[in-house]
Measured scan of single mutants.
Amino acid sequence: KDKDLLKGLDQEQANEVIAVLQMHNIEANKIDSGKLGYSITVAEPDFTAAVYWIK
């Protein structure tokens, strides 16, 4: 199951987060929520590491 990592990002921010996570071998998903911006989700086992790397 995926957990929400970040919400309300613009496309550039979302792409930067995806890139950082991929560099650390964390699979992440970018979801277009329309006017609400983009959300990033990661698998539950990767959540703690993902939070660490996006600081």
Rank of each mutant, 00 (worst) to 15 (best):
E44L: 10
V42T: 02
A49L: 11
Y52I: 06
A43N: 08
E27K: 15
N15R: 07
H24C: 10
D10E: 05
I54M: 06
Q11L: 15
T41L: 08
Q22T: 08
D46H: 07
G37V: 08
E16N: 12
D46F: 09
A14E: 02
G37I: 05
A50Y: 04
E12C: 15
L9K: 01
D4W: 15
A43M: 07
H24R: 05
A28G: 06
P45V: 14
A19Y: 11
P45D: 14
Q11K: 10
L5S: 02
T48R: 12
Q11R: 12
Q13R: 11
N15W: 08
D10S: 15
T48K: 12
H24W: 06
Y52K: 07
D32C: 13
D10V: 05
Y52E: 08
Y38K: 00
I54C: 05
A49I: 08
I40G: 01
Y52L: 06
E12M: 10
I40E: 00
I26M: 02
Q22V: 08
I18L: 10
I31T: 06
N15G: 04
I31D: 03
V42S: 01
S33W: 15
D2N: 12
T48I: 12
V51L: 14
K3F: 09
L36T: 09
V51Y: 11
I26Q: 00
D10Q: 06
I40C: 03
L36V: 06
S39Y: 09
L21F: 02
H24D: 01
L9D: 02
S33D: 14
Y38I: 09
H24F: 07
K35S: 11
S33R: 15
K35R: 11
E12N: 11
T41P: 00
V51Q: 13
M23H: 09
V20A: 06
K7V: 13
S39H: 06
N25F: 08
K7D: 07
D2L: 13
F47I: 04
A19P: 01
T41Y: 10
V42K: 00
A19E: 07
G34V: 04
D2I: 14
K30T: 07
K3C: 14
A14D: 01
D46Q: 06
A50P: 00
A14P: 00
S33I: 09
A49D: 08
T48W: 15
D4E: 15
T48G: 10
D46E: 05
K1C: 13
K7R: 13
E16S: 10
L21V: 01
S39C: 10
Q13A: 11
A28K: 01
Y52D: 05
T48F: 13
D32M: 09
A50T: 03
A28L: 04
A50H: 02
I18E: 02
Y52G: 05
D46K: 04
H24A: 06
V42F: 02
K1W: 09
I26N: 00
K30Y: 07
V51N: 08
A49W: 11
L21C: 03
G37S: 05
K30D: 01
I54Q: 02
L9S: 02
D32K: 10
K1M: 10
V20P: 00
K55C: 15
L5R: 01
N15S: 07
I40A: 01
T41R: 11
A50Q: 02
Q22S: 12
K1V: 09
L9G: 02
E16P: 01
E16R: 14
K55E: 13
D46N: 07
S33A: 12
V17P: 00
K35E: 12
K35M: 10
Q13D: 05
W53D: 00
N29Y: 11
D32Y: 14
S39I: 13
K1G: 10
N25K: 07
E12S: 09
A28N: 02
Q11F: 14
G8R: 04
Q22C: 11
V17N: 01
V42L: 04
N25M: 07
L36S: 11
V42W: 04
I54P: 00
K7N: 11
I31L: 06
I54T: 05
V42I: 06
T41S: 08
K35F: 10
V20K: 07
K3H: 06
F47S: 01
P45G: 14
L5K: 01
L6S: 03
Q22F: 11
K55Q: 13
G34S: 03
I31W: 09
V42G: 02
G37Y: 06
Y52F: 11
L5T: 01
L21D: 00
L36I: 06
E16V: 11
I54E: 01
A28P: 03
I54D: 01
K55H: 12
H24T: 02
E27V: 14
P45N: 14
F47A: 02
Y38G: 00
E12V: 09
I40S: 00
E27L: 13
L9H: 01
Q22R: 14
G37T: 08
K7S: 12
Y38L: 04
A50C: 05
E27G: 09
L6H: 02
D10I: 05
E12L: 10
V20N: 05
V51W: 14
A43K: 13
G8F: 10
A19R: 15
K55G: 11
Q22L: 14
G34P: 04
D4Y: 15
E16C: 15
N29V: 11
T48Y: 13
T48P: 12
A14F: 03
Q13H: 08
G37M: 07
E16Q: 14
V17S: 02
K3W: 10
K30R: 08
K35C: 12
A49P: 03
M23L: 12
G8V: 03
I40V: 09
V17C: 09
D10N: 13
K30L: 15
P45T: 14
N15K: 07
Q13V: 07
S39N: 09
L21K: 00
E44S: 08
G8C: 13
Y52S: 05
N29Q: 12
G34T: 03
K55Y: 12
A43Y: 06
N29D: 06
V17K: 02
K30F: 08
S39W: 10
